[in-house]
């Protein structure tokens, strides 16, 4: 059971990582705590579900499409709603994203009802047996895809002009402006990428969990803890912390009881905030924009 618990944690950790990267990046670069991030994940899951149930496209295949759709959502919301508010007060964005979350969840209740849906693939009951340990193919694929996405994003941030501009804006908004970077344009792209990653997480979640308009809520708590654990704004931190969080949750559930998984995880959250507020892997400057 020890080995299976370990594997359960590892497989879930990847999905947590992808669910967190976008949230962490938006927070790190713009200082916005995007409470609508959970709703973006939920939207990603519904898009995947629609493509799977109407057109028969496997969620793993339709993921780029879903990400593109969510990129547009994130980009547009940032441009039309959040940038104007940010000019007055960054704190107001918190209220704004909270309202957006409520709006989106209720919109999906109206569009899809609160009936529970699920994507069923032919391979969802198949698993790789390594000794006594079963590794579900769906979860394995989700975990590997998560790592791939994280690696890709890391390369984008460190190797491309856009990535450098995003990091530069995160470090010093005014200096970036003097270097010919338009911060608001960079914010749009950052928000778009963040939403696209939420969409990817939703795609992956649609293969693992039942889908309902409340889906994002079950993630947002974990996303918060992982962001702080990994260091606000850090991509590699979010991925590593995703694994740490999922492993802790998995072991707490198996050995202390499932009721303890959240007590232990949130206890950890508080401990990190006190002992190492910049997170396990965080660099100080990312959060201080």
């Amino acid at each position: 059971m020890f080995a299976q618990t370990f594997v359960n944690g590892l497989l879930l950790g990847g999905v947590y990582g992808v669910a967190t990267i976008g949230f962490s990046m938006v927070w790190g670069v713009m200082g916005i705590i995007n409470l609508a991030h959970g709703a973006y994940i939920m939207m990603g899951a519904y898009f995947s579900y629609m493509l799977a149930s109407r057109l028969g496209i496997d969620p793993f295949v339709s993921m780029p499409l879903v990400m593109a759709a969510l990129f547009c959502v994130g980009f547009t919301v940032q441009h039309l709603l959040l940038n104007p508010v940010m000019r007055t007060s960054v704190l107001l964005t918190l209220a704004m994203t909270f309202g957006l979350e409520l709006f989106l969840v209720d919109l999906f209740v109206a569009l899809f009802t609160s009936d529970i849906r699920s994507v069923n693939t032919s391979y969802s009951s198949q698993a790789l047996a390594v000794g006594p340990v079963l590794i579900s193919y769906v979860r394995l694929a989700a975990a590997l895809l998560s790592l791939t996405l994280a690696a890709f994003l890391y390369l984008v941030l460190t190797r491309t002009r856009l990535g450098q501009a995003i990091l530069a804006t995160a470090l010093d908004r005014e200096a970036a402006r003097l270097m010919g970077i338009f911060p608001e344009r960079i914010y749009n792209y950052t928000a778009g990428i963040g939403a696209a990653l939420a969409g990817a997480a939703g795609s992956l979640a649609s293969t693992l969990f039942p889908i309902s308009p409340g889906l994002g809520n079950s993630f947002i708590g974990a996303v918060f803890v992982i962001t702080v654990l990994g260091g606000i704004g850090s991509v590699t931190g979010a991925v590593a912390a995703g694994f740490v969080y999922a492993l802790i949750q998995s072991f707490a559930a198996s050995y202390l009881g499932v009721n303890y998984q959240e007590i232990v995880a949130f206890g950890l959250f508080l401990a990190i905030l006190i002992v190492r507020p910049q997170g396990l892997f965080g660099k100080r400057f990312f959060g201080e924009v």
Binding site: A253, G257, V258, N259
Partner: peptide, 20 residues
């Protein structure tokens, strides 16, 4: 006999315990 928190997002730990 097992209980999980209402609204738990992942039940693989429960399934692992039952499997054992």
């Amino acid at each position: 006999t097992g209980k999980y928190p209402k609204g738990a997002n992942d039940l693989s730990a429960v399934a692992t315990q039952i499997k054992s």
